[in-house]
Amino acid sequence: MSSPANARESAEPAVPGEDEAPIVHLVDVTSGQVLYSRNADRRFIPASMTKVMTVFLAFELIEEGKLSPAQVMTIREDTWREWAQKGSTMFLPADARVRVGDLIGGIANISANDGSIMLAEGYAGSVEAWVDAMNAKARELGLSNTHYGTPNGWPDEGRTFTSAADLVRLGQAMVERHPDKFARYVGRPEYTFNNITQPNRDPMIGRVAGADGIKTGFTNEAGFGFLGTANRNGQRLMFVIAGVDRNALRARLSRQLIEWGFSNFDRRRIFARGAVVGEARVQGGASRSIPLVADRNVYVNVPTNATGPISASIVYDGPVRAPISSGVEIAHLRISVPGMDPAIVPLVAGKDVDQAGFLGRIWNGVAGWFG
């Protein structure tokens, strides 16, 4: 949904934050549908929401075996001097020796600026090298409106920026690629390190059913922002609110927006996981077509007062060239709902298709002449 007008036409009551937050983006990440969006691609300063990428990068490195939660890092003396009690902090001591897992917990839950720098330097050798890795990961994820200048979002004259659409895409990658790590490290109501307990500033945890993260952000320049999510009965909504001028307003809008998302749409299952949705043409393969399969239960959200049919079409660059491995994403299902932007759902190959042998290539060529 690309404008507030569409949202007003398709659902009542009015969308929370329409007139109070300059940037709002709400997505059902389980269906790929945008439920409401305003200025989703506008670049803004994320402040401490920058740390989402620092945590995600740490998760990726752990998954790749390049970093271990049990690994112990030592803080540099210059780092301690610069970051001791500077903004949000873990209150790392001058001689801190800290497990990576504890650093990640401090970054994710109490927005530890000092912990972010310690992790960056401890793994990459320098903040600059860690930031380079953050930007490389952003490019890998297709975050076209994002650039990082710091690991923690400390003001850097605008070098660090992102967009709401990019932040949701990053949050979705964190949840889907690393569900166990997300559950372990993110979304704690409070966090204790070195016998100091601090509350998580997340405005939904403990107040909204299913809320489990992700990250708030604030500087005087950026205002108040939040990348938030909640999961109910297998449906995960994720949103960004940014540029809000008061903490209390951010909290109220966040809770209202997520409840609006869960209550103003009928959720319908279109295909079951494993269902064959269609087929794609194959070039140079032992088979001339390949079944396209849903790798998840496919749901669609329909505004409660919507009228008109739901339609779906398969989109891919074809024909697909053999060889093809089963389970590889090769197409998308585009689901159109009246009054909403289309939902885009990945489709995967339902079987292996090997390259055709010599005679098979001749037969495919002859068959191609006759359609």
Rank of each mutant, 00 (worst) to 15 (best):
A7H: 03
E9Y: 01
E12R: 07
A21G: 06
I23E: 08
V24K: 03
Y36I: 00
S37D: 08
A40D: 14
R43N: 13
F44R: 09
I45T: 14
M53R: 12
F56A: 14
E60R: 15
L67E: 09
A70Y: 06
G87I: 08
P93F: 06
D95I: 09
R97W: 00
L103V: 09
I104A: 06
G105M: 09
N109M: 06
N113Y: 00
S116L: 08
A120Q: 04
Y123C: 10
Y123M: 06
K137H: 08
A138H: 08
L141W: 10
L141S: 09
S144V: 14
T146G: 08
Y148V: 09
N152T: 01
W154R: 10
S163A: 12
S163D: 13
D166E: 10
D166Y: 13
I196G: 01
Q198S: 05
Q198P: 01
R201E: 06
P203W: 11
K215I: 04
N220V: 04
E221N: 02
A222V: 08
L237P: 10
L237C: 08
M238T: 03
A242D: 15
L249I: 11
L253I: 15
F262Y: 14
N264L: 03
R267D: 02
I270S: 01
E279L: 05
E279Y: 15
R288A: 14
P291C: 00
L292A: 08
V298E: 07
V298F: 05
N301H: 04
S311Q: 03
A312D: 03
V315P: 00
D317C: 10
G318K: 11
S326R: 14
H332L: 13
L333K: 01
D341E: 13
I344S: 08
Q355K: 11
L359Q: 07
G365H: 12
A367Y: 02
A367V: 14
F370M: 12
